[in-house]
Design a protein around this nucleic acid. Structure first.
Lengths: 149, 149
DNA sequence: AGTGAAACAATAGAACT
DNA sequence: AGTTCTATTGTTTCACT
């Protein structure tokens, strides 16, 4: 992963539909060389996948909420992870330092959906305690974060 | 945004390199019709952009941290938003309900980077108080969340 | 690792229903 | 909105450096 690979990744993160010729021009390589680098970046997992950023509100998921979870360890940590992995509303689940076990980011249609989701977590006995923060607005949300120079 | 648009968006979120012919087969439309729908989805903003999911660790950003910010309102809310928008390490910034003003998701090379970032926020007088959670591991992190049926 | 050229595949547009 | 057909553009492979 050299400077050129990083530049290619950044260019693709910005617009994955750019042609190999365009990228090549930006980094000073032929289309074939760029193609070969992208193949390697994808094969090595540095590029996980080509995707689209969707507007969740347009898809009917207007509410983003963060749930701080104090896990009830009787329920089983693996069971919890399996549950959140399988749950379509869970966008992120991080094991975190501090007073809470996990931080979840969930996307739901409305506040009733948030309530139902929390009810589900509670019914499954995953929660010893929890705290929910609703996102009122989002100032920044980018998948790609460039390294600082 | 009908069922077909949602299906197309989901297919692209999974793999944005799928051909129009493949997508067309999956949803029962001709390649041109799919192309026209993608054009409309992109134009309307339902699809924000075509991008790649990069492995941040491979890019040298091994640490993900969440910072709960109690904003010092003397510093100015707009100045804070401008700062986080311009800062390359800030992946997300949400205005949230509850005892904190903002929740930040940041990606940094190491813990020293986290410390430097917090020092920067402090030096700029944005923080009345804060709490930082380091992600020890991430069980789920997906850009796209399908609507529940 | 990279180049350039040729073969192949995908996309974008036009004419039409 | 959709289809089919076609021109254009982009991608992939390969022989060579």
């Amino acid at each position: 992963m050299d400077t050129i690979d990083k530049k290619i990744t950044a260019l693709l993160a910005e617009d994955a539909r750019r042609s190999l010729a365009d990228i090549g021009e930006a980094v000073g390589l032929s289309p074939s060389a760029v193609n070969e680098r992208i193949r390697r970046l994808t094969a090595s997992g540095a590029i996980k996948r080509f995707t689209v950023d969707a507007d969740h509100a347009a898809l009917g998921l207007a509410v983003t909420a963060f749930v701080l979870v104090g896990l009830d360890y009787d329920a089983g940590e693996e069971a919890f992870k399996a549950f959140v992995s399988a749950h379509p509303s869970v966008a992120e689940c991080h094991h975190v330092t501090g007073g809470w076990s996990y931080l979840l980011k969930v996307r739901l249609a409305d506040l009733a959906g948030v309530e139902a989701f929390l009810g589900d977590l509670k019914a499954r006995r995953f929660l010893a305690r929890s705290e929910t923060m609703i996102a009122l607005s989002t100032a920044v949300e980018r998948g790609f974060t460039p390294a600082e120079d």
